[in-house]
Design a protein around this nucleic acid. Structure first.
Lengths: 235, 235
DNA sequence: GAACGGCATTGAGAAAAATCAATTTTGACT
DNA sequence: AGTCAAAATTGATTTTTCTCAATGCCGTTC
């Protein structure tokens, strides 16, 4: 892991960040200490129950947020991509509710929570931006509840693959660094079952996979399996 | 459904509401129009996709928030009790994301979203209170993901019954107006399966039920089934 | 009180998913 | 190229859960 003072003014994520609405002058006057950092595959950003000192913006890469049950079972609650935030539950002084682990080499901005706290009280724009992010997180969690509560394994996996692909809109071949066990922990299935369904999808030429890269060959068919009869018609 | 102008000053929920931190003078000067209302069992407060004009505070009773899939299947995403808020997704101008239906005769306060919006921009305390509620909702949704993703039917039901009982801490015999189909839609199970497990729990004398009232006889055993080896040691 | 409708219960069989147990593949490192 | 460990695959079997169908239980209404 590698730290250095960040230059937020030139950050290419700035337009999407929680500092989006601010002028360069405001941004400059914040006095926020923001550290650039890189995390390799598998790096632990924080663990469940740890007191929260920092929040993070994920600039590039992917991170899983998981909770573990007593018996050693692990559930992945949410998967984050570039542009997403993590660790903000600490803003109310609570300890971290998840374990955050990088699924791929990732670049993040690390923000001091105490400073952020003070900042958001002063700047309603920042507070509003954070509120919006909480809402997005809640929405995605509720969609996950629907997946887990109402859909069969095939449909869950199809939805998941489509959602993943939507985070890389311009790419034909997507980075896909998840293990079958990760996917299983996210979809509430066993590793073997995920493996079987993935194999099925490949046999039906719906998807293609090699070396951590995924290609969605028939999005429309997948959308159909996922149980959403909408989406673009171009299979 | 029955409306009347509300007297927030004397509301016994005020200490827990989003207006908690305000002095009576501030509260008075808000000019918020708040309508008292009552909803009977089964009353629809709003539906998925409707433009959101109002948010609500549930003062007494219970409300289910559900999403329906294309095929007519319904998933209950969250169940609200006295003190909980609903409809606040409309604060960002979005339409309602759920259908909200009263599970029992309920009393609510109806707040105009546009006014609330202006208000929260002016009063950081209110904004912070709302933020806290979003966070609580996210936390409970994430716990639901863990239930659905990692636990078997018995454990889910046990957790659910215990959580329900915790919303009525002082009562021995709890109001329990849910149908088996409601429980099933919340726990991602079939009605019949819920019925069987409830019958099992009764045979084992873990719970007791009559006429919409539920009694938890052996909380510790339930907690054990639920997969949480903690909780009070009595019984 | 008889008839009715909505739930709840129970049973039997089918389907979905988990588990257990081998292999096989892959990728990293030497 | 060769070794090794981790991950993926595949098969066989068991467990869990769903589905379909029938029946029972209440509370209402006539």
């Amino acid at each position: 892991m590698n730290h250095k003072r960040s230059d937020c003014q030139r950050c290419r994520m700035r337009a999407q960040s929680i500092f989006a609405g601010l002028t360069p002058e405001e941004l400059c006057s914040l006095g926020m200490e923001v550290e650039d950092m890189e995390s390799g595959h598998g790096a632990v950003l924080y663990r469940t129950g740890e007191p929260a000192r920092y929040a993070y913006t994920l600039r590039e890469g992917a991170v899983k947020l998981s909770k573990s049950l007593g018996n050693g079972q692990e559930v992945i609650v949410r998967i984050l991509h570039h542009g997403d935030l993590l660790g903000f539950e600490g803003m109310q002084g609570e300890p971290h509710r998840h374990t955050a682990i990088a699924l791929a080499p990732s670049q993040l901005c690390r923000l001091d929570l105490a400073e952020l706290q003070r900042l958001s009280e002063r700047l309603p724009k920042v507070q509003a931006a954070i509120l919006q992010r909480w809402q997005d997180a809640l929405q995605s969690s509720e969609e996950q509840i629907v997946e887990l509560g109402a859909k069969r394994a095939e449909a869950r996996l199809a939805t998941f693959l489509l959602q993943w692909s939507q985070r890389y809109p311009q790419l034909r071949s997507l980075p896909f660094p998840l293990t079958r066990t990760d996917i299983a922990a996210f979809l509430g299935l066993s590793t073997e079952h995920v493996s079987r369904i993935m194999a099925d999808f490949k046999r039906q030429a719906l998807i293609q996979e090699q070396g951590g890269q995924l290609e969605i060959l028939k999005p429309t068919s997948l959308a159909h399996i996922a149980g959403m009869p909408d989406a673009h018609k171009s299979d």
